[in-house]
Design a binder for these strands. Structure first.
Lengths: 175, 175
DNA sequence: GAAATTTATTTTAGACTTAAAACAATATTC
DNA sequence: GAATATTGTTTTAAGTCTAAAATAAATTTC
Protein backbone atom coordinates (compact mmCIF):
# COMPACT_ATOMS: atom_id res chain seq x y z
CA UNK A 1 0.00 0.00 0.00
CA UNK A 2 1.86 3.06 -1.20
CA UNK A 3 -0.85 5.67 -1.67
CA UNK A 4 -0.94 8.72 0.48
CA UNK A 5 -3.47 8.69 3.27
CA UNK A 6 -6.24 11.23 3.49
CA UNK A 7 -5.27 14.15 5.75
CA UNK A 8 -7.57 13.15 8.61
CA UNK A 9 -10.85 11.30 8.48
CA UNK A 10 -13.52 13.74 9.62
CA UNK A 11 -14.83 12.64 13.00
CA UNK A 12 -18.17 11.16 12.02
CA UNK A 13 -21.14 12.20 14.06
CA UNK A 14 -23.43 9.37 13.23
CA UNK A 15 -26.16 7.38 14.86
CA UNK A 16 -23.70 4.93 16.30
CA UNK A 17 -21.35 7.50 17.74
CA UNK A 18 -24.29 8.94 19.64
CA UNK A 19 -24.76 5.64 21.48
CA UNK A 20 -23.48 5.61 25.03
CA UNK A 21 -21.77 3.18 27.36
CA UNK A 22 -25.19 2.73 28.96
CA UNK A 23 -26.57 1.06 25.88
CA UNK A 24 -26.53 -2.68 25.74
CA UNK A 25 -23.96 -4.38 23.57
CA UNK A 26 -26.70 -5.81 21.36
CA UNK A 27 -28.04 -2.37 20.55
CA UNK A 28 -24.62 -0.85 19.97
CA UNK A 29 -23.73 -3.74 17.72
CA UNK A 30 -26.87 -3.20 15.67
CA UNK A 31 -26.22 0.54 15.38
CA UNK A 32 -22.65 -0.06 14.27
CA UNK A 33 -23.75 -2.66 11.76
CA UNK A 34 -26.32 -0.28 10.37
CA UNK A 35 -23.75 2.50 10.20
CA UNK A 36 -21.31 0.34 8.23
CA UNK A 37 -24.01 -0.81 5.90
CA UNK A 38 -25.32 2.70 5.28
CA UNK A 39 -21.81 4.06 4.74
CA UNK A 40 -20.92 1.50 2.12
CA UNK A 41 -24.31 1.75 0.47
CA UNK A 42 -24.07 5.51 0.26
CA UNK A 43 -20.63 5.31 -1.31
CA UNK A 44 -21.69 2.79 -3.91
CA UNK A 45 -24.80 4.79 -4.66
CA UNK A 46 -22.84 7.97 -5.28
CA UNK A 47 -20.21 6.21 -7.35
CA UNK A 48 -22.83 4.49 -9.51
CA UNK A 49 -24.51 7.79 -10.20
CA UNK A 50 -21.33 9.69 -10.95
CA UNK A 51 -19.67 7.03 -13.03
CA UNK A 52 -22.57 5.33 -14.75
CA UNK A 53 -25.54 7.56 -14.17
CA UNK A 54 -27.52 4.74 -12.63
CA UNK A 55 -28.90 3.72 -9.25
CA UNK A 56 -28.14 1.05 -6.71
CA UNK A 57 -31.46 -0.85 -7.02
CA UNK A 58 -31.03 -1.02 -10.78
CA UNK A 59 -27.46 -2.23 -10.49
CA UNK A 60 -28.55 -4.71 -7.87
CA UNK A 61 -31.28 -6.15 -10.07
CA UNK A 62 -28.88 -6.49 -13.00
CA UNK A 63 -26.42 -8.23 -10.69
CA UNK A 64 -29.02 -10.79 -9.67
CA UNK A 65 -29.81 -11.52 -13.29
CA UNK A 66 -26.15 -11.80 -14.21
CA UNK A 67 -25.85 -14.66 -11.74
CA UNK A 68 -28.88 -16.39 -13.21
CA UNK A 69 -28.35 -17.09 -16.90
CA UNK A 70 -31.87 -18.52 -17.28
CA UNK A 71 -33.41 -15.46 -15.73
CA UNK A 72 -35.42 -15.15 -12.56
CA UNK A 73 -39.10 -14.77 -11.83
CA UNK A 74 -40.38 -11.63 -10.19
CA UNK A 75 -40.78 -13.52 -6.92
CA UNK A 76 -37.25 -14.85 -7.04
CA UNK A 77 -35.94 -11.35 -7.61
CA UNK A 78 -38.06 -10.14 -4.72
CA UNK A 79 -36.64 -12.80 -2.40
CA UNK A 80 -33.03 -12.25 -3.40
CA UNK A 81 -33.15 -8.53 -3.17
CA UNK A 82 -35.25 -8.67 -0.04
CA UNK A 83 -37.77 -6.14 -1.23
CA UNK A 84 -41.50 -6.33 -1.88
CA UNK A 85 -43.01 -7.78 -5.02
CA UNK A 86 -44.49 -4.48 -6.03
CA UNK A 87 -41.10 -2.88 -5.82
CA UNK A 88 -39.70 -5.37 -8.30
CA UNK A 89 -42.55 -4.69 -10.70
CA UNK A 90 -41.67 -0.99 -10.90
CA UNK A 91 -37.94 -1.55 -11.03
CA UNK A 92 -38.29 -4.10 -13.81
CA UNK A 93 -40.58 -1.78 -15.74
CA UNK A 94 -37.92 0.92 -15.68
CA UNK A 95 -35.15 -1.43 -16.74
CA UNK A 96 -37.28 -2.83 -19.55
CA UNK A 97 -37.89 0.76 -20.63
CA UNK A 98 -34.11 1.30 -20.69
CA UNK A 99 -33.70 -1.86 -22.74
CA UNK A 100 -31.47 -3.57 -20.18
CA UNK A 101 -33.75 -6.45 -19.22
CA UNK A 102 -36.61 -8.34 -20.81
CA UNK A 103 -39.63 -10.28 -19.58
CA UNK A 104 -40.35 -13.69 -21.06
CA UNK A 105 -43.71 -15.29 -20.25
CA UNK A 106 -43.23 -18.60 -18.51
CA UNK A 107 -44.09 -21.64 -20.61
CA UNK A 108 -45.65 -23.67 -17.84
CA UNK A 109 -47.17 -21.03 -15.62
CA UNK A 110 -49.14 -18.29 -17.21
CA UNK A 111 -49.07 -16.19 -14.04
CA UNK A 112 -45.34 -15.98 -14.14
CA UNK A 113 -42.62 -14.52 -16.28
CA UNK A 114 -38.87 -14.80 -16.38
CA UNK A 115 -36.78 -11.67 -16.33
CA UNK A 116 -33.36 -11.77 -17.93
CA UNK A 117 -30.61 -9.49 -19.18
CA UNK A 118 -30.74 -8.26 -22.76
CA UNK A 119 -27.40 -8.11 -24.59
CA UNK A 120 -27.38 -4.39 -23.83
CA UNK A 121 -28.06 -5.17 -20.18
CA UNK A 122 -25.25 -7.68 -20.03
CA UNK A 123 -22.91 -5.23 -21.68
CA UNK A 124 -23.88 -2.43 -19.31
CA UNK A 125 -23.44 -4.68 -16.30
CA UNK A 126 -20.07 -5.97 -17.46
CA UNK A 127 -18.89 -2.41 -17.86
CA UNK A 128 -19.88 -1.55 -14.32
CA UNK A 129 -18.92 -4.60 -12.33
CA UNK A 130 -15.11 -4.28 -12.32
CA UNK A 131 -15.30 -0.75 -11.02
CA UNK A 132 -17.93 -1.74 -8.51
CA UNK A 133 -15.65 -4.46 -7.25
CA UNK A 134 -12.86 -1.94 -6.99
CA UNK A 135 -14.94 0.35 -4.81
CA UNK A 136 -15.79 -2.48 -2.43
CA UNK A 137 -12.19 -3.62 -2.27
CA UNK A 138 -11.03 -0.09 -1.56
CA UNK A 139 -13.48 0.39 1.26
CA UNK A 140 -12.29 -2.82 2.89
CA UNK A 141 -8.62 -2.15 2.34
CA UNK A 142 -8.12 -1.39 6.04
CA UNK A 143 -9.03 -4.96 7.01
CA UNK A 144 -6.57 -7.81 6.97
CA UNK A 145 -7.43 -11.08 5.24
CA UNK A 146 -7.98 -12.62 8.62
CA UNK A 147 -10.21 -9.77 9.77
CA UNK A 148 -12.37 -10.27 6.73
CA UNK A 149 -12.64 -13.99 7.22
CA UNK A 150 -13.47 -13.56 10.86
CA UNK A 151 -16.04 -10.89 10.09
CA UNK A 152 -17.57 -13.07 7.40
CA UNK A 153 -17.88 -15.90 9.86
CA UNK A 154 -19.42 -13.83 12.61
CA UNK A 155 -21.91 -12.24 10.25
CA UNK A 156 -22.85 -15.76 9.20
CA UNK A 157 -23.64 -16.57 12.81
CA UNK A 158 -25.62 -13.37 13.13
CA UNK A 159 -27.60 -14.11 10.02
CA UNK A 160 -28.52 -17.51 11.34
CA UNK A 161 -29.41 -16.09 14.71
CA UNK A 162 -31.73 -13.52 13.17
CA UNK A 163 -33.43 -16.18 11.11
CA UNK A 164 -33.96 -18.36 14.15
CA UNK A 165 -34.93 -15.74 16.66
CA UNK A 166 -36.77 -13.14 14.63
CA UNK A 167 -39.76 -11.56 16.25
CA UNK A 168 -42.88 -13.60 15.74
CA UNK A 169 -45.15 -11.51 13.55
CA UNK A 170 -48.41 -10.51 15.19
CA UNK A 171 -47.38 -11.71 18.62
CA UNK A 172 -48.96 -9.46 21.20
CA UNK A 173 -51.73 -6.94 20.88
CA UNK A 174 -51.16 -3.60 19.30
CA UNK A 175 -50.59 -0.88 21.87
CA UNK B 1 -33.46 -20.30 27.35
CA UNK B 2 -36.46 -22.56 27.62
CA UNK B 3 -38.63 -21.64 24.66
CA UNK B 4 -39.21 -24.09 21.89
CA UNK B 5 -37.24 -23.55 18.73
CA UNK B 6 -38.86 -22.91 15.41
CA UNK B 7 -39.34 -26.14 13.45
CA UNK B 8 -36.67 -25.35 10.86
CA UNK B 9 -35.49 -22.02 9.56
CA UNK B 10 -36.54 -21.77 5.94
CA UNK B 11 -33.47 -21.91 3.73
CA UNK B 12 -33.14 -18.28 2.74
CA UNK B 13 -32.65 -17.55 -0.89
CA UNK B 14 -31.18 -14.12 -0.62
CA UNK B 15 -28.72 -11.96 -2.42
CA UNK B 16 -25.86 -13.30 -0.39
CA UNK B 17 -26.70 -16.94 -0.87
CA UNK B 18 -26.57 -16.37 -4.60
CA UNK B 19 -22.91 -15.36 -4.39
CA UNK B 20 -20.45 -17.98 -5.50
CA UNK B 21 -17.04 -19.20 -4.49
CA UNK B 22 -15.76 -17.24 -7.46
CA UNK B 23 -16.63 -13.96 -5.87
CA UNK B 24 -13.96 -12.16 -3.96
CA UNK B 25 -14.08 -12.21 -0.19
CA UNK B 26 -14.60 -8.46 -0.09
CA UNK B 27 -17.74 -8.70 -2.19
CA UNK B 28 -19.14 -11.68 -0.31
CA UNK B 29 -18.49 -9.86 2.94
CA UNK B 30 -20.38 -6.82 1.71
CA UNK B 31 -23.31 -8.93 0.54
CA UNK B 32 -23.49 -10.75 3.85
CA UNK B 33 -23.29 -7.50 5.75
CA UNK B 34 -26.10 -6.06 3.66
CA UNK B 35 -28.17 -9.20 4.17
CA UNK B 36 -27.81 -9.03 7.94
CA UNK B 37 -28.61 -5.37 7.98
CA UNK B 38 -31.68 -5.78 5.77
CA UNK B 39 -32.92 -8.74 7.79
CA UNK B 40 -32.76 -6.92 11.09
CA UNK B 41 -34.18 -3.77 9.61
CA UNK B 42 -37.09 -5.63 8.11
CA UNK B 43 -37.89 -7.30 11.40
CA UNK B 44 -37.80 -4.07 13.34
CA UNK B 45 -39.90 -2.37 10.70
CA UNK B 46 -42.59 -5.04 10.85
CA UNK B 47 -42.60 -5.13 14.62
CA UNK B 48 -42.88 -1.35 14.89
CA UNK B 49 -45.83 -1.34 12.57
CA UNK B 50 -47.64 -4.22 14.23
CA UNK B 51 -47.01 -3.19 17.80
CA UNK B 52 -47.02 0.59 17.61
CA UNK B 53 -48.38 1.45 14.21
CA UNK B 54 -45.32 3.49 13.34
CA UNK B 55 -42.35 3.36 11.01
CA UNK B 56 -38.62 2.86 11.41
CA UNK B 57 -37.56 6.34 10.25
CA UNK B 58 -39.96 7.92 12.73
CA UNK B 59 -38.74 5.73 15.55
CA UNK B 60 -35.18 6.45 14.54
CA UNK B 61 -35.70 10.19 14.63
CA UNK B 62 -37.33 9.98 18.06
CA UNK B 63 -34.41 7.88 19.26
CA UNK B 64 -31.93 10.53 18.16
CA UNK B 65 -33.85 13.20 20.00
CA UNK B 66 -34.14 11.07 23.11
CA UNK B 67 -30.36 11.03 23.31
CA UNK B 68 -30.15 14.79 22.93
CA UNK B 69 -32.10 16.51 25.71
CA UNK B 70 -31.43 19.96 24.24
CA UNK B 71 -32.69 18.92 20.84
CA UNK B 72 -30.87 18.73 17.55
CA UNK B 73 -30.79 20.89 14.47
CA UNK B 74 -32.05 19.53 11.19
CA UNK B 75 -28.46 19.17 9.99
CA UNK B 76 -27.44 17.26 13.08
CA UNK B 77 -30.37 14.90 12.61
CA UNK B 78 -29.39 14.48 8.98
CA UNK B 79 -25.81 13.61 9.91
CA UNK B 80 -26.75 11.17 12.65
CA UNK B 81 -29.37 9.38 10.64
CA UNK B 82 -27.21 9.48 7.52
CA UNK B 83 -29.98 10.72 5.29
CA UNK B 84 -30.40 13.87 3.24
CA UNK B 85 -31.50 17.17 4.68
CA UNK B 86 -34.68 17.17 2.66
CA UNK B 87 -35.58 13.82 4.09
CA UNK B 88 -35.37 15.17 7.62
CA UNK B 89 -37.60 18.09 6.69
CA UNK B 90 -40.41 15.77 5.64
CA UNK B 91 -40.00 13.37 8.54
CA UNK B 92 -39.98 16.19 11.05
CA UNK B 93 -43.06 17.71 9.47
CA UNK B 94 -44.92 14.43 9.94
CA UNK B 95 -43.80 14.02 13.53
CA UNK B 96 -44.74 17.60 14.34
CA UNK B 97 -48.12 16.87 12.82
CA UNK B 98 -48.43 13.86 15.12
CA UNK B 99 -47.48 16.03 18.08
CA UNK B 100 -44.41 13.98 18.96
CA UNK B 101 -41.70 16.55 18.27
CA UNK B 102 -41.51 20.33 18.16
CA UNK B 103 -39.35 22.86 16.36
CA UNK B 104 -37.85 25.74 18.33
CA UNK B 105 -36.25 28.57 16.36
CA UNK B 106 -32.61 28.97 17.28
CA UNK B 107 -31.81 32.07 19.29
CA UNK B 108 -28.49 32.83 17.65
CA UNK B 109 -29.00 31.59 14.10
CA UNK B 110 -32.20 32.52 12.40
CA UNK B 111 -31.67 29.93 9.66
CA UNK B 112 -31.72 27.14 12.15
CA UNK B 113 -34.13 25.50 14.51
CA UNK B 114 -33.82 22.92 17.22
CA UNK B 115 -36.02 19.87 17.10
CA UNK B 116 -36.91 18.16 20.35
CA UNK B 117 -39.34 15.66 21.80
CA UNK B 118 -42.66 16.88 23.14
CA UNK B 119 -43.89 15.23 26.34
CA UNK B 120 -46.12 13.08 24.14
CA UNK B 121 -43.11 12.19 22.01
CA UNK B 122 -41.05 11.25 25.03
CA UNK B 123 -43.91 9.15 26.34
CA UNK B 124 -44.40 7.41 23.02
CA UNK B 125 -40.70 6.70 22.70
CA UNK B 126 -40.40 5.39 26.24
CA UNK B 127 -43.28 3.02 25.54
CA UNK B 128 -41.55 1.64 22.47
CA UNK B 129 -37.93 1.41 23.48
CA UNK B 130 -38.03 -1.56 25.90
CA UNK B 131 -39.77 -3.69 23.33
CA UNK B 132 -37.42 -2.49 20.63
CA UNK B 133 -34.48 -3.50 22.77
CA UNK B 134 -36.08 -6.89 23.28
CA UNK B 135 -36.37 -7.47 19.54
CA UNK B 136 -32.71 -6.65 19.00
CA UNK B 137 -31.65 -8.84 21.89
CA UNK B 138 -33.73 -11.71 20.57
CA UNK B 139 -32.26 -11.48 17.09
CA UNK B 140 -28.76 -11.64 18.53
CA UNK B 141 -29.49 -14.39 20.98
CA UNK B 142 -27.54 -16.88 18.88
CA UNK B 143 -24.28 -15.00 19.45
CA UNK B 144 -22.13 -15.42 22.51
CA UNK B 145 -20.92 -12.42 24.46
CA UNK B 146 -17.52 -12.92 22.92
CA UNK B 147 -18.93 -13.18 19.40
CA UNK B 148 -20.69 -9.90 19.89
CA UNK B 149 -17.61 -8.17 21.23
CA UNK B 150 -15.49 -9.52 18.41
CA UNK B 151 -18.07 -8.50 15.83
CA UNK B 152 -18.33 -5.05 17.35
CA UNK B 153 -14.59 -4.67 17.14
CA UNK B 154 -14.32 -5.82 13.55
CA UNK B 155 -17.18 -3.60 12.44
CA UNK B 156 -15.31 -0.74 14.09
CA UNK B 157 -12.32 -1.52 11.91
CA UNK B 158 -14.53 -1.71 8.87
CA UNK B 159 -16.16 1.59 9.64
CA UNK B 160 -12.78 3.24 9.92
CA UNK B 161 -11.60 1.61 6.74
CA UNK B 162 -14.61 2.85 4.82
CA UNK B 163 -14.09 6.36 6.11
CA UNK B 164 -10.45 6.33 5.08
CA UNK B 165 -10.74 4.59 1.76
CA UNK B 166 -14.08 5.70 0.42
CA UNK B 167 -14.26 6.37 -3.28
CA UNK B 168 -13.22 9.89 -4.08
CA UNK B 169 -16.32 11.63 -5.39
CA UNK B 170 -16.06 12.78 -8.98
CA UNK B 171 -12.82 10.97 -9.64
CA UNK B 172 -12.79 9.80 -13.24
CA UNK B 173 -14.95 10.84 -16.13
CA UNK B 174 -18.47 9.57 -16.48
CA UNK B 175 -18.77 6.64 -18.86
C1' DG C 1 -64.69 -31.64 -11.20
C1' DA C 2 -66.50 -27.63 -8.61
C1' DA C 3 -65.24 -24.92 -4.66
C1' DA C 4 -61.81 -23.23 -1.79
C1' DT C 5 -57.11 -22.19 -1.15
C1' DT C 6 -52.70 -20.87 -2.53
C1' DT C 7 -49.37 -18.61 -5.46
C1' DA C 8 -47.48 -15.00 -8.82
C1' DT C 9 -47.91 -10.66 -10.06
C1' DT C 10 -49.75 -6.00 -10.49
C1' DT C 11 -52.05 -2.04 -8.76
C1' DT C 12 -52.84 1.41 -5.38
C1' DA C 13 -52.02 4.91 -1.95
C1' DG C 14 -48.92 6.75 0.72
C1' DA C 15 -44.47 7.17 2.94
C1' DC C 16 -39.55 7.57 2.42
C1' DT C 17 -35.51 8.88 -0.14
C1' DT C 18 -32.40 11.26 -3.06
C1' DA C 19 -29.94 14.96 -5.66
C1' DA C 20 -30.24 19.35 -7.18
C1' DA C 21 -32.01 23.91 -7.12
C1' DA C 22 -33.68 27.69 -4.49
C1' DC C 23 -33.65 30.69 -0.46
C1' DA C 24 -32.23 32.92 3.40
C1' DA C 25 -29.04 34.06 6.82
C1' DT C 26 -24.32 33.98 8.49
C1' DA C 27 -19.39 34.29 7.86
C1' DT C 28 -15.41 35.65 5.21
C1' DT C 29 -12.68 38.44 2.19
C1' DC C 30 -11.01 42.38 0.32
C1' DG D 1 -18.81 47.53 4.85
C1' DA D 2 -19.92 45.68 0.33
C1' DA D 3 -19.14 41.60 -2.32
C1' DT D 4 -18.45 36.80 -2.06
C1' DA D 5 -18.66 32.44 -0.16
C1' DT D 6 -20.55 29.29 3.05
C1' DT D 7 -24.08 27.19 5.82
C1' DG D 8 -28.88 25.62 7.25
C1' DT D 9 -33.05 24.51 5.57
C1' DT D 10 -36.79 23.84 2.34
C1' DT D 11 -38.62 22.83 -2.11
C1' DT D 12 -38.88 20.16 -6.21
C1' DA D 13 -39.05 16.26 -9.26
C1' DA D 14 -38.34 11.78 -9.68
C1' DG D 15 -37.26 7.32 -8.02
C1' DT D 16 -37.63 3.70 -4.43
C1' DC D 17 -40.21 1.28 -1.11
C1' DT D 18 -43.96 -0.70 1.61
C1' DA D 19 -48.36 -2.95 2.90
C1' DA D 20 -52.64 -4.09 1.42
C1' DA D 21 -56.05 -4.96 -2.03
C1' DA D 22 -57.02 -6.73 -6.48
C1' DT D 23 -56.33 -10.09 -10.38
C1' DA D 24 -55.53 -14.09 -12.36
C1' DA D 25 -53.87 -18.60 -12.73
C1' DA D 26 -52.51 -22.75 -10.47
C1' DT D 27 -53.29 -26.30 -6.82
C1' DT D 28 -55.74 -28.68 -3.29
C1' DT D 29 -59.78 -30.36 -1.12
C1' DC D 30 -63.89 -32.48 -0.89
Amino acid sequence: MSELRQPAPAPANDRETAATRDDKLELRLWLRLLTCSSLIEQNVRTALRERFDTTLPRFDLLAQLDRAPDGLTMSELSARMMVSNGNITGLTDRLVEEGLVKRTPSARDRRSSHVSLTPAGKKAFDAMTPEHEGWIDAMMAGLSRQDMQQLFLLLGKLKQSVHQNAVEPNKGEKV
